[in-house]
Design a protein around this nucleic acid. Structure first.
Lengths: 205, 205
DNA sequence: TTCGAATTTTTTGTATACATTTTTAAAATA
DNA sequence: TATTTTAAAAATGTATACAAAAAATTCGAA
């Protein structure tokens, strides 16, 4: 049996609650009551409490309520993404090894043909690999922390099949492969801006 | 009596433990034992536990031990600072109103003549005001989260009286005042790089 | 001695009870 | 009816007890 067969309850709770938020089972605005969740998950309030605190730190919960990110929130997050992921793309153009470039290419290929879920995963992986090329754990952590909210957003984008999204990914990779740092950064920023614009436009309906 | 006269114990604990870490009473590497801290602070383990979790999220504690940031950690943090504070300085050149510019000027003036503690506060305030000019709460939050580790660092820098530090602040403000966004960003990045270099050089002794 | 198994001690994780605070609902007054 | 007061309930914060896990120590054998 694996050494990790047993998982502390509070970690398990954290993941369960997080998933409930991300898949919409706990929609934005819902008040999280410790006792109710405890009963639902079959544990005491203690681990639930810790989970909620952690989710609060991550920004998915605010004042015991599930966050419903506003358009402004999204703008702010994307501003940070453009800075940090743009920088990461620039690094990738200098540092990323061939094997990783191959993996990035696979993400693009898979995303072209997969189901919605597979495409979402592949697109996330695409960004993750580039962020990791920054070789800066702080940057990785910051982007990771925003991931949850980005996730809620990305779901909508892929669901509506934003045109050119995957082509843009390909262009970014091409720039990285030809070690054109300035182009990689610029293309990444434009790509994120397009994502954001598309999303904001959707909100108009 | 004010409505906030009473403070939840876990908030109080958080602040006390945090201060103990920042002022060196709990030096890097120290193992934090819930029960001992609880006794020391005169509360039960419950609020202490929550405080530790929060400090873990903030990066001041890792695996129950007080973090001792490595040179690499510092490099990574400063890379992020250069990106985000550089951007903020750029924004400041466009958006910062005159009243705030005045406040920034005061920070510089105070820092020139104050004691070590006053100078530290003023320098922190200088950076805070510029970060706020980004008008992006995400950026403010990220920088704030790094503040604790930055604080430990800044203490050393001011203690050893890095030359030109305040002059550089003045140059940045001048660029902001003349609405030269590119210069503001460049000067801020150079300033942070100089800070980092100075610190790394100190470490060589 | 040195290594490793076994045991003790320490520390953490969880449940539960109770106190305090906040929220909600109800009643009473203008 | 609207608004404030008061009472009720619900929810959170805290302490404490116990169980499980991790760490430290002891002991014996090579």
């Amino acid at each position: 049996m694996s050494k990790q067969a047993f998982q502390a309850a509070y970690i398990h709770c954290y993941e369960l609650i997080r998933d409930k938020i991300l898949n919409g089972e706990l929609p934005g605005g819902t008040k999280l009551v410790e006792e109710r969740l405890a009963e639902e998950l079959g544990v005491s309030r203690t681990p639930v409490r810790e989970s909620i605190r952690k989710l609060e730190q991550e920004g998915l919960i605010q004042k015991k309520r599930v966050v419903q990110p506003s358009v402004e929130d999204l703008r702010h997050i994307f501003e940070v993404r453009m800075l940090l992921e743009g920088f990461s793309a620039r690094c990738a153009a200098s540092y990323m090894d061939e094997a990783t470039q191959e993996k990035v290419q696979e993400c693009i290929t898979i995303a072209r043909e997969g189901t919605v879920d597979i495409t979402m995963d592949a697109n996330k992986q695409f960004h993750d690999l580039i962020v990791q090329a920054s070789r800066n754990p702080e940057i990785v952590r910051i982007i990771d922390r925003m991931q949850s909210i980005i996730y809620l957003f990305r779901r909508a984008v892929v669901y509506y099949k934003r045109p050119f999204l995957i082509d843009e990914h390909q262009h970014i990779l091409d720039a990285i492969r030809s070690h054109d740092a300035a182009a990689a950064e610029r293309l990444m920023k434009e790509h994120l801006q397009a994502d954001l614009d598309f999303y904001l436009h959707l909100g108009k309906h």
